[in-house]
Design a protein around this nucleic acid. Sequence first.
DNA 1: GCCAACGTTGGC
DNA 2: GCCAACGTTGGC
Length: 135
Amino acid sequence: MRYWLVKSEPSEYGWEDLLSKGEDIWDGIRNYQARNFLKEMETGDEVLFYHSGKNKEIVGIAKVSQEAFPDLEDGEDKGWVAVKLKPHKALANSVTLEQIKSDSILSTIYLVKQSRLSTMPVEKIQFDHIIQLGS
DNA sequence: GCCAACGTTGGC
DNA sequence: GCCAACGTTGGC
């Protein structure tokens, strides 16, 4: 079991959209580093859902419901992949970027170090800590 | 609105 | 293969 964080601009696609769908394809990733992480995701892995832009906070936990499969571009397999996600649990209190940056356990995560990466792994200790902050 | 950090593109 | 120019993302 591994832990991840995915990022989305809520005006494009937010946690609410995933909730209302019940399960959805997480596609359109066009960055090699993010793609490699997507390929490593396994069914049942837990995924923190982060809203970029105005709110900048982790709002919920999703689970990988289907492992990587080809994400076609113009009907062709160009090596990009998508996964499927299901909402698992909303955080009672969302965890803000400000909290994350000021926390000694969390300040080293990719979210802070490499702000443009949209899909990234999270250490278990960090994941657990975020859940604790969000409960 | 600006800027930093990346990624991509294209000329050489 | 290098690098300058440009585009994009996302925080401030």
